[in-house]
């Protein structure tokens, strides 16, 4: 008797194992795998439209061979890597500090939580348009404030390296809430008693943070960092309205190059090749990063 019940429940468990994963797999198979295959196929073709019909010509690796000579791709890759590095580092540090502080204070938590999340609620297109006005050298509120403090103003978007920095500032402003929210949720699920025990043991706040909180936060930290990295590689909205990639190629970023080549210039084959290469490089970065994180986790 006991045995058949067990077998029945094992069968039920097997069924549920499948049922619970199936919806996610279905979504990925239908809406993700198909476009990826499509992208890869396009990247080895030239696609032209004649008499209302598409003509696909197989060109092999031609598009990939062209990539290294493309000024915009080169600038886009370099800028995107630098952008991701600086912006994501700043966001992780600031976001973690804010989350940690908010989780440790007694008064004003709800207020801070709400305020810190505001930027992520705004549509990217509005953020771009409004910051562009705020950066305006003649009438912008930022220079007005600087003048009020007796400081000289800047032409924030006018010259290369400053424009790059200005775009990063907007990104940090926009995306730190993402880090803040996830890390705060992570901090809130940490068992409260461990923190209290550490404090009772007389550990300094810093020791407690280093030896207890951060190690326990590693999974969520890694996950947040991975996602921020990925999303920062796709940065588009802010650049689109703030600088359009200029002046020169100072703020050209990869997703913008893809948009231009793929859509504006209607070069679906070539644009797909840039996407595929970007995917490949980014996957490499993430795999290396995950490997490192895993080794770190095992070390602990």
């Amino acid at each position: 008797m006991r045995g058949t019940a067990d077998r029945a429940s094992a069968k039920a468990a097997d069924r549920w194992r499948f049922y619970t994963l199936a919806p996610a797999l279905a979504v990925y198979l239908l809406l993700a795998l198909l476009p990826i295959v499509n992208l890869a196929t396009m990247s080895v073709h030239d696609i032209h439209w004649q008499q209302g019909a598409a003509r696909w010509t197989l060109v092999g690796m031609k598009h990939y061979a062209e990539l290294p000579r493309d000024v915009l791709v080169r600038a886009g890759l370099a800028n995107t890597a630098l952008f991701a590095l600086i912006a994501v580092t700043a966001e992780m540090l600031i976001g973690f500090a804010l989350a940690l502080f908010v989780s440790r204070i007694a008064v004003g938590r709800v207020l801070y939580r709400t305020i810190f999340l505001l930027p992520i609620l705004l549509p990217g297109i509005v953020i771009g348009a409004i910051w562009k006005l705020m950066y305006n050298p003649d009438f912008g509120v930022i220079n007005q404030l600087l003048h009020l403090l007796g400081l000289p103003g800047f032409d924030w978007l006018g010259s290369g390296s400053l424009a790059f920095l200005s775009v990063i500032i907007v990104d940090v402003w926009h995306w730190t809430p993402f880090v803040f929210l996830l890390l705060l949720a992570g901090l809130e699920t940490l068992p409260q008693d461990i923190h209290e025990a550490a404090m009772l043991d007389g550990a300094s706040a810093w020791q407690e943070l280093r030896d207890v909180t951060i190690p326990m936060m590693v999974p969520i930290l890694v996950m947040t960092l991975a996602f921020r990295l990925i999303v920062s590689f796709k940065v588009f909205d802010e650049v689109y309205l703030l600088t359009g990639g200029g002046p020169g190629t100072a703020t050209e970023v990869l997703s913008f190059t893809i948009y231009r080549r793929f859509f504006t210039e209607d070069r679906m084959g070539y644009g797909s090749a840039i996407s595929v290469i970007a995917l490949f490089l980014l996957t490499l970065v993430i795999v290396l990063f995950m490997g490192m994180a895993r080794r770190r986790m095992h070390a602990h």
Partner: peptide, 23 residues
């Protein structure tokens, strides 16, 4: 599944729009 979903997440949505529309 995790790796696949990360890779999918890396694609700029703008390149997905065309195939989705056709579909």
């Amino acid at each position: 599944v995790l790796m696949g979903s990360l890779v999918f997440h890396m694609i700029p949505p703008i390149t997905l729009v065309g195939p989705w529309y056709v579909m």
